[in-house]
Amino acid sequence: MTLSRRALAAGIGGVALAAGLGATGIAAAGEGRGRAGRRPQTRTIRYQGSAGVVTPLELAATLGYLADVRLEWIGNSTSGPQDIQATVTGDTDIGGAFNGAIIRLVAAGAPITSLFGYYGIDAKVWSGYYVRTDSPVRTVRDLAGRTVGANTLGGQAEDVLRMRLRSAGLGQDVAQSAQIVVVPPVSAEQALRSGQLDVAVLGGVLRDTALRRGGIRPVFNDYQVLGTFTCGCQVMRNDFIHDNPDTVRTVVAGVARAIAWSQTRPVRQVIDRFERIVRARKRTEDAAALQFWKGYGIARRGGVITPRELSVWLDRLSDSGIVDRRDAPLDRLYTNRFNPYPGVA
């Protein structure tokens, strides 16, 4: 059964789909059918990028780690949830999003599996929840009922906020009272300063430049909540994995090597590589923010996925009644089988 875009959007919002939309398993990928009669595996991967950003997938291609697999860029993603929706509907072959959004989509019946982590947070790469210096918000508990600017609904900023409010001792209803307002990241600082928002989630260069201008202060940040933590994964459809196991292995292994390359090279060397990549692809994009790049924030070497990186969000979504954990069992959410780096059970 094919999932419609409307159904997918409902799934990300936590609305369960009708029964019968089970995910196709990938346990038999590359097994169960002999080579005879198998159609040739695709060696082209369609994907979405991001303006001014070099993803681990793109880095792997330019380092020569994808062998004969060719990347086909079809445009830029507007958000993680949109990116994985495009993968589910077959518009792309791979997409990435915050792990909580992936869980919501799987629980709604989407036949996808996470293959490797591609972004996260650490001591250098994190986002904070900021208010104006004259704001009455002083503690985490004061965030209840406030407007909070974030880049998307059902994303990492929202789930971290709800988790932090609950850990501050607030009940479920009170924790849910903080209102997420979707704001483009580049507009969040101005919306905060003008009073359109009570709180803005700021990270990276947007956070650093806002702090230099002064007039804002943090309430908390996501690194304080999670520590070093991989927050998002890249996914593929289960039928694509089943039909193209050799291609998937090449892609995952190549991206894992590229992630490890970025984790073990001086930051300046990585930035120089990124700048060459952006210039070469000629997409009319601003690469200025690359100067502020500090890392992908991926916790494990090569993007290996750990159970906790998904179970944290599964527990929160289940406890909140957003997702029935039976619809998204942990062992169906991810696999490390294609990753050449040491796996995690």
Results as ranks from 00 to 15, higher is better:
M1Q: 08
L3K: 04
S4L: 06
R6Q: 10
A7T: 12
A7E: 14
A9D: 15
G14C: 04
G20N: 00
G22N: 13
T24I: 14
I26H: 15
R35A: 11
R35Q: 13
A36C: 12
T44Q: 13
Y47G: 01
V53D: 00
V54K: 07
V54R: 11
T62Q: 14
L63V: 04
G64F: 08
G64M: 07
Y65P: 00
V69A: 01
I74P: 06
I74L: 06
N76A: 05
S77H: 05
G90L: 04
D93T: 13
A97G: 02
A97Q: 08
G100T: 10
A101W: 03
I103G: 07
L105M: 13
V106C: 06
V106N: 09
A107P: 09
G109T: 05
I112Y: 12
Y118W: 14
V125F: 02
V125P: 08
V125Y: 01
W126N: 10
Y129F: 10
Y129S: 03
P136H: 08
V137G: 01
T139K: 11
L143G: 01
G149R: 00
G154P: 06
A157R: 03
D159L: 15
R164M: 04
L170F: 05
A175N: 02
Q176E: 12
S177C: 07
V186M: 13
S187T: 14
A191S: 03
L197Y: 06
G204I: 02
L206Y: 12
R207K: 15
R207S: 10
R207W: 07
D208N: 11
A210W: 11
I216T: 10
P218E: 08
N221G: 14
Y223M: 03
G232L: 00
V235H: 08
R237I: 01
N238F: 00
N238R: 02
D243H: 06
V252R: 03
G254D: 07
A256W: 04
A256D: 00
R257V: 01
R257F: 02
D272F: 02
R273D: 14
I277N: 11
I277C: 13
I277T: 08
R279L: 00
A280E: 12
T284N: 12
A287Q: 09
G297L: 01
G302K: 02
R308W: 10
L310Y: 01
W313M: 01
R316E: 10
D319V: 12
G321W: 09
D327I: 07
D331R: 13
N336L: 13
R337K: 07
G343A: 15
V344C: 13
V344S: 15
A345I: 03
